[in-house]
Write a protein that binds this DNA or RNA. Structure first.
Lengths: 216, 216
DNA sequence: GTCTATAGGCTGATAGAC
DNA sequence: GTCTATCAGCCTATAGAC
């Protein structure tokens, strides 16, 4: 790794941590420069603008996560028939493993994705980065549970993403609503409980496709 | 309604719409003033600061939503035994009805809540406003499905909120991942499909509490 | 209650020395 | 590649006329 690349990594790490903590708009380029221990001008030299710096922060780990998820999907594709639960694991486990073992930056990244995904402003950035793999997983869900229509699979996928984002953002909502009895920091435990939750959810959704509602 | 209150409502409406669209930090007090058609100084006269203006925007509809949810919970409490599905409806339907019939401001509010809930900065604001009703619903979930531990009920509640927020934020994620075949704008349809999804989810979670996992 | 003018500070970006 | 100095613009908040 050249000197320039190492400098860029330091800047990306600092930007990631600050953006995750305080939000893109609140953090100034000076904050990032101070956090990285580099002069202000160097950031613009390497990344061009604040906006491009942010995009680079998002892109860095998105690529790694997408690769691992693709691999996990290929793995379970070999063993037929594929179950919904296997697809859920292929989606959640790569993220869990990276968050647990991939260094502290992944914790920041989780918080960052949560903010970015809900801001209208970065919508294209997120869907450009994650849209392709999303299509793969919607296909896998529909294949694993034939009762699911395409619409249901897509809706279910979006719900799954909402839950996933909430887990890896690890904000304190859970701690507070549980009066401190459950901690949001234990992402492994959160994933373990999310699997049966989501497996049941897709089962319930599939069942509602075949059984008419009581009102009808 | 006095003149001052009407002016405040106009300011709140403009602030809500702009904040929802572009985010708190991006929107300036000048933007809000222009949107409301009032001079800049008037906003600080009525609300004191930008931060307090934002809190007022959040509080206004939170109080109304909490009241309706409480009422819905009381209603289903009268008919024993309470089902998970009834609790889900008590949680989602008031929000749906307000979003559908309560005027365009509720659409903005949905987007705003999504952003606010994921920003570390406003965490206390959200939990202060919604925490009490959250406790009521966690109790109701645990009562409706005795197999659920308190921890499971709390986790499930948080997941339910994640999904709800995603639905009412109505961002374009769903439209994009479904290649335009499903629209996120139809919140009624989204709620209808979320009910069996979540009912199945709590069923799956409860089942996982009694049945040991295959690995054990 | 409403409106105007302005103070004081921080922002992103860059020109130019090394 | 790295670092410093600086510019022009925008921000929130407020003092004071009406």
């Amino acid at each position: 790794m050249g000197k320039a690349e190492r400098t860029q990594a330091v800047i990306l790490d600092a930007a990631e941590a600050r953006f995750a903590e305080a939000g893109y708009d609140t953090v100034s380029m000076r904050d990032v420069a101070d956090g990285a221990g580099v002069p202000l001008g160097l950031i613009n030299y390497h990344f061009g603008s604040k906006e491009k710096l942010f995009e680079a922060v998002i892109a860095r780990r998105a690529d790694e996560l997408n690769t691992r998820r693709r691999e996990a999907l290929v793995q379970i594709g070999k063993a037929a028939p594929t179950t919904i639960e296997a697809v859920l694991r292929a989606f959640l486990r790569p993220y869990l493993e990276l968050t647990r073992d991939g260094g502290p930056g992944w914790r920041s990244y989780g918080k960052l994705i949560a903010q970015t995904g809900q801001s209208h402003r970065w919508g294209n950035l997120i869907t450009n980065r994650f849209g392709e793999v999303a299509g793969l997983f919607i296909d896998a869900l529909a294949k694993a549970e034939p009762r699911l229509t395409r619409e249901m699979a897509a809706r279910g996928y979006v719900h799954m993403v909402s839950i996933m984002v909430g887990i890896f953002a690890a904000n304190e909502t859970l701690d507070i609503v549980s009066s401190g009895k459950v901690t949001s920091g234990d992402v492994e435990r959160a994933c373990d409980s999310a699997i049966p939750f989501l497996a049941g959810a897709f089962e319930g959704l599939a069942a509602s496709a075949t059984a008419p509602s009581p009102a009808e």
